[in-house]
Every structure is written in structure tokens, then in C-alpha cells.
Design a protein around this nucleic acid. Structure first.
Length: 797
DNA sequence: GTTTAGGCTTCG
């Protein structure tokens, strides 16, 4: 969620980028821009609940220094409006760089910064130290004051009570080092409950009971030793000691408790204060805790390589795959890059039920611990996505477990295998915490995992290859490429400096467009590479009526014979229609009259009806006494239900001539296009899909290999309902309407990354799905014919 | 401005 910090230190992993160096090719990852607010626009409500605010920052006071427009969206715009004044210094990170549409007018930087993404962050520094204003509304007052008067609109300053100064029946703010905690869990009442025990320099240990409506509003504690700042907790007495309990308006901020690490506030609060004093408080508590061995005495986090049978421990790891076992148990397959000295228990589960790869290379498999998660932890485990980093608290290494669900009989005899159980309940802080990607612990874990990938010759059998051998996965897709490359997470792919080429991903489909699938069907010209929509029937109809209105007599060309064809009325009682046709005298003499006719003056509907009786129908009109094709966008040919269009700019407007049928077995669209000097347009399918995995989302195109993907030809999609339904069903299976993530199958895909050149000449990386198709083809009936060539059967109306 | 929980292992 985008966050506005007041007075907080900029995280150490971010580096400053001078405004002058910003360009549309700037990679904003881990960068920040800093400047003084020289203009703050009004908060604009753009749509229900959405806000936009524009501000201008300048690098330095001097008017020589560059200035840049920043556009903030959503809650961040709102917070900015409330907390920032002209004259404040702001730091922005997580921005996107766009072209400034107002550069000519305002003379600011040619680019602007857009702050809309979830990692967008603003750090605000007020020029004066906060006053002692007691007005709690002060910080919320919207203000456009200049720097001189802004000191009257300062936020209230919080005071913190040392734990030995707590008085009964009062609401206070406290700081403390966490010495024990239970992760948030649902209470029997209406709230999420978490309990912690904190201490400070008083060395008193105070029990806190916190109730919040939302899980994320609890302190985000990753380990004992973390430092919490609790606002609005009230004191109460329980069993002769003083306790803290969350009061109305409770809010928490958590910090890493390790000396030397960046003081980065963790909180779900959209806007909160953070001053120099807070930084100091955190550092004092860190130093005090370190010198009193508060953490080392209690921490039980160990790597897999240090696990002992029967012992309880905490594990920092990455989730690779998971599978539900039964209603009270879920299997999590995790690793931390280290190898357990004991043989790890193998749990056999139905391959169909696995989320994430079903198997891994042998080297990797040896490092993977099977964690069985029970009872109250199952619900949380179900929401986890493979790839996520976790800390599992109070895990137990159980030797020789003989009654593990899912165990096969052949395995039950193996007794000294270690299994890992996360028992039900919350005793001893038992539970699972998701660690964010940017946390120090995850950074360390990731480098350990990368070491494994580099060190080991892991090029043997890849995870997904094995999977193909093992089972027919429940997924409807399989890769058909020849690459033997590791599956990568989407975040890795996005961060890759040189993404061009092929990649394997394992993803879910989170959305796709167009939703109206007929819009996915396009016409493509292989000569000029143009892509256009399939013309609307209404528009085509107009061209036909226009042509029939202007029908004038014309003498047929020498190679053709004129005739008439009787078309029965469409409804009972309606009169028959007589239509003028031309036919090739050569074909007539060969008895092939039904193979090709030229028709004049018919409507679109009539032409379609005639297509039942003639294999090829070319609609024509008279132009200056000669036969000519109808104007774009009328099809140049009707074959059964299929219509063929020519490229408007690549086709020659020549007189309609006789197809050369010598040595031609079948008169098809190719023969006819050639004879008419028409550049035929090809039906193609084009969709934009959003893929997701645990780490990121990625927009990709489905185009060149769309027919393989659906196992249907675009031409058939254009012509028959069955093929269209097939695509609908497939998309619905991959991305059920209104279904949550859990209902979406995991798909192994091969992607090609390529570069496109846009206006500015700068390449943009695009992705296409390639060599990936459905495993069990459910072809529509017409698929039994080779697509694109050969005779097309006339379909029943 | 209710209630919940108020640490203290383990069916598997």
C-alpha cells in the first residue's frame, strides 16, 4: 500500500537520483528523488473514492535547479494533501516516470513522476521542529500556507510512558522491545487478537492484549527483539499485575530491533508521525536490548541444517509448493538452502492437488522440508502462494512419524525420517508469518538460495519436465517448447536486465481482455503487418446495399456466362428473389458450375444463404461497365460460413478476372485471391493476459501462438459458434468469473520477451505466450478438417 | 466504545 511517512529516515537500499537525470527510461527501482515542495495543488476527486493531487518539487532553493511535476493518486494524494505544506522537503520512491504533458507551459522537467503503484512512498520533512500544539486536528488540516506560517499547523507530539510509570486506568502510548508474541489469530469475539510481552529500560515485562478489526492492523512482528510503538493502549489490572490492552484508536508501528539496521517503520497506518525522537527511541532500545541479551536469550530461529529431532524451532524459509491433505492438515514444501542432516520425510500427495511444481530436481528435492500444518493454521496456509517467504514459529521436528496423512505403505516402514509439524493452537507463539521481500532476513535467505542455484549442477532434469513424466497435471496447459530452462518467478523476470528471449513461468491467469471474445478476433495483413478488427455485419451490409442500389447493366467478360439464380423467400409467403450471377464458361463445361459463382446485387444475407449451394461465391458489382469487387469492408469471397477479406492498401484494384484452374484440384481462397490480385487478410486471435504468481504480475500478449494455445484455428473461430464456445470455456476454466485465486489453475507457460520500438525510438519489452497449448484438446467438430486448406464442408444452417 | 484473552507445546 502506498505510504506517507512523516520525518522517517529514507531506507538504506534507496539511492538518490538527481532530478536532472530522470528520463522515461529511468528504472525507478530502489531510487528516490528529493526536493522542496514549491507548489502543492488541490486534492481533486477524480471518481468515487479516488483522489489526484499534483505537486511540484525543486531540488534546491535556487531557481536554477531543476523542478519536476509529481502526480499522486488515491490515498497517498489524500495523505499528502493533509500532511504536506509548501516549503516541506519530500522524498519520493516507487514512482513511474511519464512524459509531462505540460512541459511547454510550465517549463518544469520534461518528465513527470507518477505515484500510484503499491510501492509508492513519500517521506515528508517539515522545515521546523514540531511545536507543542495540542490540537489533534492540526496534522489533518489541509493547508496551502507558505513555509513561514506552516509551523502553526504542526501535528501533536506523542509522549511515551516508560513501563515502570504505568498507572492504572489510563490510556497511554508506549515503546517496548518484544520479548514474546503470539501472531494475530481470530478471537472468539469479533476481532483479531494478538498478545505480546514487551520490556524497556525499566526491565519490567508488560503483557499486552491487542484487538483489531483487521489482521494487518496488529504490530507486524517478525521476531522476538523487534521494537513496537503502541499508540492508545489502556492499562488494566489482571492477577495483580498491570497489563496493556488496545484502546479506541489503537495504532502500532514496528521496527527491526537489530542494532545497525535501517530504522524502517512497519505499519498498516496510511499516515503516521515519525520524528527524529522516534528514531532515537528505537536506537536506544536496540542498544539497551543488545547489551542485555534480550533477543539471544529467547530466539529459536535456526536453519534446517541445525534441526534436532523432537526440538521446537522457528524456521525462515521460502514456500515452494503446497497441497491440502485433508480439512485439518495442509502440506507446505519449503526450503532455506541448507540441508538437514537427517533424512527428510517424503509425503506423497495427489499430484492434482499440488499448487506449485509437483517435483523438483534431485538436488533441490534433497533440501526440501515437508511441513504439515494443522487445524487453525490451515486457513492461513491455504492463502499462501508458492514463492512467498515465511517464518514458521514453533515448528516441531518429529522423527519416525508413521502416521502421516498421505503416506504410502512402502514409506510407512521408514522410521527415522524427520517430519515437521506445526501443531494446532497458538501456544508458544505457534503460527506462520509472511516476511516481505524487502526485509533484511529475506534478503539474506535469498542470497543463500541463489548460492544453491549457482553451486549445484542443477541442470539435470528440470522441475517441470519431471512433472510431465510424473503425472498429467490438473492444469489445462502444457509447454511444447524445446527449452530446458528453469521456471522463474515473475518478479525475477521483471527485474532481469536482459529479458529478451525465452522464459518459463508458472502462473495463474488473473485477468484478460478483451472480455467480449469476438473482439479478440482480428484481421492481419502479412504484407503490411496491419491489424484490424473484423468488420461489423452492419457495415458490410451497407456496402452490399450500396452496390445493389447502384447496380447497372454490364456485359459479362468474355470468359464468363451470365445467368440467374432463384433464391427462395426467407419466410413462408415472402416472394422469391432472382439474382444475377456470372459463371466461368470453362468451369461450366467441366460440370463444375457449383464450384464458383460471381454474384451481383445480392444482400449480405442472401449471399450467405447462397453459400450453402456454391463452394465459392465472389460478390461483384459493375464499375464503368466492368466487373469489379465490392468496396472494403465487403469480403472478396464467401466459402461456406467462412468469409475472406482483402487488405485495402495491399490489394490491386484490378478488373475481376477468371481464376486459372489449370492443374488446380480445388478452388480455394488462395487460388481466388491470386486471380483477383487481392492480398488476403489472415484471421488471427489477439488477447492481452495478466499473469500472476506469488511475486508479481505480468501483462503478456497471446497472439502468434494463440491458435496452438486454444487448439483451434482463428478462421474457425470466425466461422463457427462451437469454436467460439471452445475459447470461452477455456478462458472460463483458466480464469473463472468471480472466482478467487484458489479456483484458478496453475499454468506452465513459455514466454518470449521481445523488444518493440515506439515513437521515441526506445525499445519497450513485450511478452508473448509461445509454444504453450491445452493438453486435452476438445476440438469443435470442424477441427477434424485440416485448417486453412482443403475443402470446407458446408455446415448445417 | 460489547466481546474477545489474559503465553506455557504435542491427535496428527
Amino acid at each position: 500500500m502506498p505510504v506517507l511517512f512523516e520525518g522517517a529516515q529514507v531506507p538504506a537500499h534507496l539511492t538518490n537520483i538527481p532530478i536532472s537525470l530522470i528520463s522515461t527510461s529511468t528504472d525507478s527501482a530502489n531510487k528516490y528523488v528529493k526536493g522542496k515542495v514549491i507548489h502543492k495543488g488541490p486534492l481533486v476527486v477524480s471518481a468515487a473514492d479516488n483522489f489526484i493531487l499534483k505537486t511540484v518539487i525543486q531540488e534546491d532553493d535556487s531557481s536554477q535547479k531543476p523542478s519536476i511535476n509529481i502526480v499522486l493518486f488515491g490515498d497517498l494524494a489524500k495523505s499528502f494533501s493533509q500532511s504536506v505544506n509548501q516549503g516541506d522537503v519530500v522524498v519520493a520512491s516507487g514512482f513511474q516516470v511519464g512524459k509531462s504533458p505540460t512541459v511547454r507551459k510550465d517549463n518544469h522537467h520534461a518528465c513527470n513522476l507518477l505515484l500510484s503503484k503499491s510501492d509508492a512512498c513519500i517521506y515528508v520533512y517539515h522545515p521546523q521542529s514540531p511545536s507543542d500544539s495540542k490540537s489533534p486536528q492540526a496534522s489533518k488540516r489541509s493547508s496551502t500556507c507558505s513555509a513561514e506560517v506552516s509551523q502553526t499547523t504542526k501535528a501533536p507530539k506523542y509522549t511515551y510512558v516508560r513501563l515502570d510509570n504505568l498507572k492504572l486506568s489510563s490510556t497511554v502510548n508506549v515503546y517496548g522491545v518484544v520479548v514474546f508474541f503470539k501472531l494475530p489469530h481470530k478471537s472468539r469475539g469479533t476481532h483479531w487478537c494478538s498478545t505480546l510481552k514487551i520490556t524497556d529500560q525499566s526491565n519490567l515485562k508488560i503483557q499486552c492484549t491487542l484487538f483489531c478489526n483487521k489482521r494487518e492492523d496488529h504490530p507486524q512482528i517478525f521476531q522476538v527483539g523487534d521494537i513496537v510503538r503502541l499508540h492508545r493502549v489502556k492499562t488494566q489490572s489482571y492477577e495483580e499485575s498491570i497489563q496493556l490492552i488496545s484502546a479506541y484508536g489503537f495504532a502500532a508501528v514496528t521496527f527491526d530491533g537489530i542494532v545497525g539496521r535501517a530504522v524502517e517503520p512497519r505499519t498498516s497506518s496510511r499516515s503516521f508521525q515519525f520524528h527524529q525522537e522516534d528514531q532515537q527511541k528505537v536506537e536506544e532500545l536496540r542498544a539497551w536490548a543488545a547489551s542485555h541479551s534480550i533477543v539471544s536469550a529467547t530466539s529459536t530461529t535456526i536453519p534446517l541444517s541445525a534441526t534436532q529431532p523432537k526440538a521446537y524451532f522457528d524456521l525462515t524459509c521460502q514456500l515452494l509448493a503446497k497441497a491440502p491433505i485433508d480439512t485439518t492438515c495442509t502440506l507446505l514444501r519449503v526450503w532455506d538452502g541448507s540441508q538437514c542432516p537427517h533424512t527428510l520425510l517424503k509425503v506423497i500427495v495427489e499430484p492434482d492437488s499440488v499448487e506449485g511444481p509437483v517435483s523438483f530436481s534431485e538436488n533441490k528435492e534433497n533440501l526440501i522440508a515437508n511441513v504439515l500444518v494443522y487445524d487453525n493454521h490451515v486457513e492461513f496456509a491455504r492463502q499462501l502462494k508458492p514463492g512467498t517467504f515465511l517464518r514458521i514459529f514453533n515448528l516441531r521436528a518429529i522423527p519416525g512419524s508413521s502416521r502421516v496423512p498421505g503416506l504410502t505403505s512402502s514409506q510407512a516402514v521408514e522410521h527415522d525420517h524427520l517430519a515437521f509439524h506445526l501443531h494446532g493452537g497458538t501456544s508458544y507463539g505457534r503460527g506462520i508469518q509472511v516476511l516481505p521481500e524487502n526485509s533484511q532476513d529475506v534478503q539474506e535467505l535469498k542470497s543463500a538460495l541463489e548460492m544453491f542455484s549457482k553451486d549445484k549442477d542443477d541442470s539435470g532434469v528440470s522441475d517441470s519436465e519431471l512433472m510431465d513424466i510424473w503425472c498429467t497435471p490438473p492444469e489445462t496447459l502444457e509447454r511444447r517448447c524445446i527449452h530446458n530452462i528453469e521456471t522463474v518467478m515473475l518478479s525475477q523476470l521483471k527485474q532481469c536486465n536482459d529479458p529478451l528471449g525465452s522464459h518459463h513461468v508458472r502462473v495463474q491467469l488473473s485477468s484478460f481482455k478483451p472480455h467480449r471474445l469476438h473482439q479478440a478476433l482480428k484481421l492481419y495483413c502479412s504484407k503490411c503487418s496491419s491489424l484490424q478488427d473484423v468488420p461489423d455485419d452492419e457495415v458490410v451490409n451497407r456496402v452490399f446495399s450500396e452496390a445493389s442500389r447502384n447496380a447497372e447493366l454490364c456485359s459479362p467478360p468474355s470468359w464468363a456466362l451470365s445467368g440467374k439464380v432463384n433464391l427462395p423467400g426467407i419466410s413462408h409467403g415472402s416472394s422469391n428473389r432472382t439474382l444475377h450471377i456470372h459463371s466461368s464458361s470453362e468451369l461450366l463445361s467441366e460440370g463444375k458450375a457449383k464450384e464458383l459463382i460471381y454474384i451481383m446485387g445480392s444482400s449480405l444475407e442472401e449471399t450467405c444463404r447462397l453459400a450453402d449451394g456454391y463452394q465459392n461465391i465472389i460478390p461483384v458489382r459493375s464499375s464503368e461497365g466492368r466487373l469489379a469487387l465490392l468496396d472494403w469492408p465487403a469480403p472478396f469471397l464467401f466459402r461456406g460460413r467462412k468469409r475472406y477479406y482483402g487488405c485495402k492498401s495491399c490489394s490491386e484494384a484490378a478488373a475481376v478476372s477468371e481464376p486459372s484452374c489449370e492443374g488446380v484440384d480445388v478452388i480455394d481462397e488462395k487460388v481466388i485471391a491470386e486471380a483477383l490480385q487481392v492480398q488476403p487478410l489472415q484471421f488471427v486471435l489477439l488477447m492481452e493476459l495478466q499473469l500472476q504468481d506469488a511475486t508479481d504480475t505480468l501483462d503478456v500478449f497471446l497472439w502468434k501462438h494463440a491458435e496452438m494455445f486454444f487448439n483451434v484455428s482463428a478462421e474457425d473461430v470466425a466461422a463457427n459458434q462451437e469454436a467460439q464456445d471452445h475459447i470461452s470455456r477455456t478462458m472460463n476454466a483458466l480464469c473463472p468469473k468471480g472466482g478467487s485465486d484458489v479456483h484458478r489453475p496453475w499454468l506452465d507457460m513459455c514466454l518470449t520477451a521481445y523488444s518493440t520500438v515506439c515513437d521515441g525510438g526506445r525499445g519497450q519489452t513485450c511478452y508473448q505466450i509461445c509454444d504453450t497449448g491445452i493438453i486435452k484438446p476438445r476440438p469443435p467438430p470442424s477441427e477434424s478438417y485440416p485448417s486453412g486448406s482443403g475443402p470446407t464442408p458446408h455446415e448445417a444452417a
